[in-house]
Design a protein around this nucleic acid. Structure first.
Length: 908
RNA sequence: GGACGAUUAGCUCAGUUGGUUAGAGCGUUCGAUUCACAUUCGAAAGGUCACUGGUUCGAGUCCAGUAUCGUCCACCA
């Protein structure tokens, strides 16, 4: 007999098993022995940021995807799960910048662009491997031979090609947009580089001039020099009559042409309910200007000073100009009110200077431009169409709405970023005149670019005097938007609009599994870019998982100290337990709570599974796994029951997994293994041994559990002899198995439910047996009788021998029911010959109440079913079996109802 | 302000197109345990499915409204 330890020790086996899998080569679909027409099943791993360390969010994502991947691999799909990392431009930029400051006290500006980028690459060569190494710990069956990085050479080529293609079709264009500008650092700031300061400031209410009909309120009077409109709420009765008018005024020497426009974003109750629109120096105003085709007048320059041509105001700083405007307003008697208010001021995260919103030249992707290659539809239209036609399905469904809502409101996508780390923009300029907007940041300070410039876009940059490359970089999402096809060999595998190689084999992918917070940022971009580049959707399904929260439902964070480190948990409880804890109890789109206790309880489940194996292997030393059972070998009632239940489980689980109901599937599995197999079948198996059936059930649960808990199942599988084709003796077999990589559970065939083995009658009978045993045990303990002698209420005891052994009682004789009382209550057995009055066992009043309630319920059921059968719509359309089923149910209810009424009568 | 979600046992949550008398785990209570299982087993108690209406033969499930909580987005001139 083999020595099997009492508990499964994950630490001892997990790394070895992972290596065994990797060595087998089956993570790579090219090595799977499959028929030529095997369907592909592809998931591209959402690339984690290189700055990340594995956290529970990753673990959850990996557990779900690996479950899907392992399930489909076992089902015989050409299964590919492709790993990679994201350069995460801004995040990485920030991390390295902070590191630099901490270690050397230097800023990136001190280092200069070239040196800073070298620092970044040094950093990422170290961190990049960390996160992917940690994903191996989760048991992720990723094809490492296809690993990609959003900024490796292949992806650089792809990104450049995409930019050039889009530019050539006029999808990418250069335009102006408001950016956050720090007048001190002379640099643009991303939204998440802003810091907010709550400040007291003054709100001024005034009219531009005596002849202007509406007073406006503002905290920045100096920008009013650039106003081109006044916006009011369209429902505002006070101003309705002015909408559409253009009024010319003289604003202390500066002529203004103000159009009155309506915009629903204007609040009637704030200030005067009218808003002076300064397109060049406010994000919102810029959008209004776009909508209403307003002229844009720039007032403030890059140093935060008033530009030329603004008379007495020119050359002053914004604050000086503000004071001057206010004093002029006072002098002219135009200032109506001056009040204190709280304001949220955006400041530069580096120097704390107030940020100045300024327009600057940026590159954009036009989402509304009609394209020939998209059948004369725009990217937006096409991306909406595929969702509306359900070519792309969202799981859960409600997120389809979030996607379409967002898509419908999509504006052109600004893809240039004024940071140093990221994909270069394949654009070169040459000119002689200074550029009007010197905001393009070359890294070594601002160098003016020029007007009248020549622009070159392409991958054969002109060499020679005067040509400089665009110093900006591309938005991270531009490269990650291409992720499904750039990882599969686009553009090399896409010549003359024909897919080849991996792109042909694996695109479109089957599932994108990601967090719901990222639908707008990533999912929508991937869809548009894939439609543009490959002419097809990037994925057929989008599965959205929730966030992982602590046991109190709070976000995990370092500052709160409530974070759980998955690597610690793996160390402590094993990967399988962590995976199970993340999969069971989490439903699509909903957040999942996790705690150490939860993981621990799943470790117990793994131990249970291990001990089932231990029992099997020690009590049946020669036992083998049985893939297909000979009906002759199914002997006892318990055999029939467990085989039937196994086949129901197979069907249910397969169905659930196909429908993305992982939690439900996991629960069913756990229930079956723990409550049915371990608690009941193993107990009866001790009495009536049947190693064929045990081997059969074990074979099934190992396979069904594998996608959830791959390590422990693979370990048991490799240790356990199988009966399949191999003729070697069981004793040699385990060793042989380890030598042959063909015989891994990971690539075994997913079981198919055999309907012939489903036996509802035996199931019912066994359930009755379970109940009887439980009742006897309980009665026995309640009355402290040992050994117990029991007389059944009914004439005959089915499965008497088994019941006696399981409940450890002796059933003495069988007697018919004693009046009505014998069948009252849930128990089928009563003690009678032990000197206990049977009436003691029953609380008559309680029984009456219970019976009355039951009669009430049954009456309702009878009337409902009668109603259903009387409904012509139902009887005409429902299948015959269903109608018949309801008829027999009705009869059953009626009989039960009669019986219960009689019992109630007997009770008095 | 807009959108979406949640409200089911003491706690955490399932509940598949409406259809046997609403489920699980934890906790509580009562018992058992020489057994493959430091991590075992059997049982019990515990629910007006947030509230009010509606549709239906039938509603936890569909519709409308109310309340409370949460998430995202926008805005703070």
């Amino acid at each position: 007999m083999r020595e099997i330890p009492k508990t499964y020790e994950p630490k001892k086996y997990e790394d070895k098993i992972y290596k065994l899998w990797e060595k087998s080569g089956f993570f790579n679909p090219d090595n799977l022995k499959l028929p030529k027409n095997a369907k592909p099943y592809t998931i591209i791993l959402p690339p984690p940021n290189i700055t990340d360390k594995l956290h529970l969010g990753h673990s959850s994502m990996l557990a779900i995807q690996d479950l899907l991947i392992r399930f489909h691999r076992m089902k015989g799909y050409r299964t590919l799960w492709l790993p990679g990392t994201d350069h995460a431009a801004i995040a990485t930029h920030n991390v390295v910048e902070r590191k630099l400051l901490k270690e050397t006290g230097k800023t990136r500006h001190d280092l200069g662009r070239k040196k800073f980028l070298e620092e970044i690459w040094k950093f990422l060569h170290v961190t990049q491997k960390t996160i992917l190494g940690q994903t191996r710990k989760m048991g992720a069956s990723l094809d490492w031979s296809r690993e990609a990085f959003t900024m490796d050479e292949e992806r650089k080529v792809a990104v450049k090609k995409m930019f050039i293609d889009m530019y050539n079709e006029g999808v990418i264009y250069r335009g102006e947009r408001i950016v956050n500008w720090c007048p001190r650092c002379h640099s643009t700031l991303a939204d998440d580089e802003l810091e907010y300061e709550n400040q007291k400031t003054k709100l001024y209410t005034f009219k531009y001039a005596k002849n202007f009909p509406i007073a406006i309120a503002t905290t920045r009077p100096e920008t009013k020099l650039g106003d081109t409109a006044v916006a009011v709420n369209p429902k505002d009765e006070r101003y309705k009559k002015f909408i559409g008018q253009i009024i010319e005024v003289d604003f202390f020497g500066v002529p203004l042409k103000i159009k009155i426009i309506a915009d629903r974003n204007v609040e009637k109750d704030f200030g005067t309910g009218a808003l002076g629109v300064t397109p060049a120096h406010s994000m919102v105003d810029w959008q209004m200007a776009e909508k209403n085709a307003l002229p844009i007048v720039k007032v403030i320059d890059e140093d935060g000073k008033i530009k030329n041509n603004f008379g007495q105001f020119s050359g002053r700083t914004a604050l000086e100009a503000r004071e001057l405007v206010v004093s002029e307003l006072k002098k002219a008697g135009l200032l109506e009110k001056e009040e204190e208010m709280e304001n949220n001021l955006s400041t530069c995260y580096r120097c704390g200077t107030a940020v100045e919103p300024l327009p600057s030249k940026q590159w954009f992707v036009a989402v509304d431009k009609k394209l020939k290659r998209l059948g004369n539809k725009s990217l937006k239209e096409k991306a909406l169409e595929v969702a509306k036609q359900k070519k792309i399905q969202f799981i859960p469904l409600r997120f389809a709405k979030r996607y379409t809502d967002w898509m419908e409101n999509l504006h052109d996508w600004c893809i240039s970023r004024q940071i140093w780390f990221g994909h270069e923009i394949p654009v070169w300029y040459r000119s002689s005149e200074p550029h009007p907007s010197p905001l393009l940041n070359t890294g070594e300070g601002v160098k003016p670019l020029r007007t009248g410039e020549e622009v070159y876009v392409g991958d054969n940059p002109p060499v020679g005097k005067g040509w400089t490359q665009d110093p900006d970089t591309l938005d991270t999402w531009f490269s990650s938007g291409m992720w499904t096809f750039s990882t599969l060999g686009w553009p090399n595998n896409f010549k003359k609009n024909e897919k080849s190689g991996d792109l042909k084999k694996f695109h479109p992918t089957q599932v994108l599994e990601t967090g719901y917070e990222i639908i707008t940022l990533w999912v929508s971009r991937m869809i548009m870019m894939s439609l543009f580049a490959v002419g097809e959707i990037p994925f057929e399904n989008v599965y959205l998982h929730g966030m992982v929260l602590d046991k109190f439902g709070k976000k995990m964070s370092k500052s709160k100290g409530n974070g759980i480190d998955p690597l610690d948990m793996i160390e402590k409880f094993g990967t399988d337990a962590v995976r199970l804890a993340l999969l069971i109890g989490s439903t699509p789109g909903n957040d999942v709570r996790i705690s150490e206790e939860k993981i621990e309880s799943f470790r117990n489940f793994v131990t249970k599974l291990w001990n089932i194996y231990r029992y099997a292997a020690t009590t049946h030393p020669d036992m083998q796994l049985v893939e297909k059972i000979n009906p002759k070998d199914i002997k006892t009632l318990a055999d029939k029951w467990i085989v039937s239940k196994s086949n129901i489980l197979i069907a249910g689980l397969t169905n659930d997994l196909e429908g993305y109901k992982f939690s439900l599937a996991g629960e069913k599995l756990q229930n079956f293994i723990w409550n049915d197999l371990a608690d009941w079948y193993l107990e009866t198996n001790k009495i009536e041994k049947n190693e064929k059936v045990l081997g059969y059930v074990l074979d099934k649960i190992l396979k069904l559990t594998h996608p959830f808990a791959p390590f422990v199942t693979e370990k048991i599988w490799t240790d356990m002899p199988a009966s399949s084709a191999d003729k070697m003796s069981p004793k040699v077999r385990p060793l042989a198995r380890q030598r042959s990589n063909l015989d891994l559970l990971m690539v075994s065939k997913w079981p198919v439910s055999d309907k012939k083995l489903i036996d509802k009658k035996s199931e019912k009978e066994f359930e009755k047996l379970q109940k009887t045993v439980g009742q006897i045990r309980n009665l026995r303990s309640s009355y402290k009788i040992d050994p117990v002698r029991v007389i059944t209420a009914y004439g005959k005891v089915a499965n008497q021998g088994i019941i006696e052994k399981l409940a450890r009682v002796k059933i003495l004789e069988a007697k018919p029911p004693i009046g009505g009382l014998a069948s009252v209550g849930k128990s089928l057995v009563k003690i009678s010959d032990l000197g206990i009055d049977i009436a003691e066992l029953i609380d008559t009043e309680k029984e009456k109440v219970r019976l009355q309630k039951e009669i009430e319920n049954l009456t309702k059921l009878v009337s409902n079913t009668e109603g259903l059968l009387a409904n012509k719509k139902f009887t005409a359309s429902a299948p015959k079996e269903i109608v018949a089923q309801n008829k027999s149910r009705l009869k059953e209810y009626q009989e039960k109802l009669e019986g219960q009424k009689e019992l109630l009568g007997n009770l008095g």
